[in-house]
Write a protein that binds this DNA or RNA. Structure first.
Length: 275
DNA sequence: ACAAATACCTGTAAGC
DNA sequence: TGCTTACAGGTATTTG
C-alpha cells in the first residue's frame, strides 16, 4: 500500500522526469478522483497550461507545484498509482486522470478502488491548507521532540498513535507493524507507559525502517498493487519482519508471530519479544 | 471525550 | 463450475 516510503519513491521519480515540463492537456475520466472540486472543469482549467516546477511530499500526500502558485495534491489511497505512459498508449482500466505534457510521456492516475484523489489548491507560505492537520513527517522533518509530544499529547496505544496522521504523517498499517517490531514494543502498549529509553528506541526504529524502505523503493504486497512511476514493484516487502507473516517464526526470537484483528484491520507482532 | 466500528470502493482468492 | 464471502486499508464519519 502506498504509505510514506512508496509516495517518496514516486516523488523522486516524478521530480526527475517531469520537473520543468509544461502540462498541455488534462483529462478527467473518473469524477470521483477529483471529488473535492464541485466540477471536474475546475481542476482541468487550473492545471492545464501550467508548468510543473517541483514535486514535494508531506506524509502520504504528493505535492506537485505549478508555476503561477497552485499545487496539485495527490493521495493514492490504497490502490492508487501514478504511472508514466507514452501518449499513444491506450488508457489502462481505471485511469481516472491523464496529464499530457509538451514533450515526453503522460503522467496518469490509475486507481481501481477509488480511495485516492487529486485536487488543485493554493498553498500559503508553501503549506497546503487542506493538510494543516498533519503531524510531523518522520523523514522530511525528523524531530525526536515531536514524537515525545505526540506520545504525551493524549494517551493512546502505540499503533493507533503511529497511524494517526495528525500526530505522525505518513505511517500506515504495514509500516506501523514493522516499526513496532524494530522497536521491540507491542502495538497495544499505552503510549504514556514508555520509558525514555523505549521512546528513543521507537524514534530510531521509525526513522530507520522508513529510511530503509525508501532505499528499497517501497513495499509491494501479494497483490502487487503498489507500483512505482515506471510500473515496477518495490523490494522492501522482502525485508518485512512481521507484516503479513502470521504463524511464521519471529526472526528475532523464533516464537510464532501473532495476528490480531481489530475493526477489520490486522496487526502482526511477536508476543514474546515485543513488550 | 474518547475509542471502536463502519462506509466508501473493487480485484482477488478462498470456500461451498 | 459458479456463486458467495472475506479481505486488503486510508480517511471521514458515525456509533458506543
Amino acid at each position: 500500500m502506498p504509505e510514506l516510503a512508496e509516495v517518496e519513491t514516486i516523488r523522486r521519480d516524478v521530480a526527475a522526469l517531469y520537473a520543468g515540463r509544461a502540462i498541455t492537456g488534462v483529462e478527467v475520466h473518473g469524477v470521483r478522483s477529483v471529488r473535492r472540486h464541485a466540477v471536474p472543469g475546475e481542476f482541468i482549467s487550473r492545471v492545464a497550461g501550467r508548468r510543473l516546477v517541483a514535486a514535494r511530499r508531506r506524509g502520504k500526500y504528493l505535492l506537485l507545484d505549478l508555476d503561477g502558485g497552485d499545487t496539485v495534491v495527490a493521495h493514492l489511497g490504497m490502490s492508487g498509482q501514478l504511472l508514466t505512459a507514452d501518449p499513444g498508449q491506450p488508457l489502462a482500466r481505471h485511469t481516472h486522470v491523464r496529464l499530457a505534457f509538451d514533450t515526453g510521456p503522460d503522467l496518469r492516475f490509475v486507481d481501481p478502488r477509488t480511495f485516492g484523489q487529486m485536487w488543485v489548491t493554493r498553498p500559503e507560505q508553501g503549506a497546503i491548507p487542506e493538510l494543516s492537520h498533519l503531524g510531523f513527517d518522520p523523514l522530511e522533518d525528523p524531530d525526536a521532540a515531536d514524537l515525545v509530544a505526540a506520545l504525551t499529547r493524549r494517551p493512546t496505544r502505540l499503533k493507533p498513535l503511529l497511524m494517526d496522521q495528525s500526530r505522525v504523517a505518513g505511517i500506515g498499517n504495514m509500516y506501523a507493524d514493522e516499526i513496532l517490531f524494530a522497536a521491540r514494543l507491542r502495538p497495544d502498549r499505552p503510549a504514556a507507559s514508555l520509558s525514555a529509553t523505549e521512546t528513543r528506541r521507537l524514534y530510531r526504529a521509525m526513522v530507520s525502517v522508513l529510511t530503509d524502505a525508501v532505499a528499497h523503493r517501497g513495499s509491494s504486497l501479494a497483490d502487487e498493487q503498489y507500483r512505482d512511476l515506471y510500473g515496477r514493484v518495490g523490494e522492501y516487502q522482502k525485508k518485512h519482519k512481521v507484516y503479513a507473516r502470521g504463524g511464521q517464526p519471529c526472526p528475532r526470537c523464533r516464537a510464532e508471530i501473532t495476528r490480531v484483528r481489530t475493526g477489520g484491520r490486522s496487526s502482526f507482532y511477536c508476543t514474546s519479544c515485543q513488550t
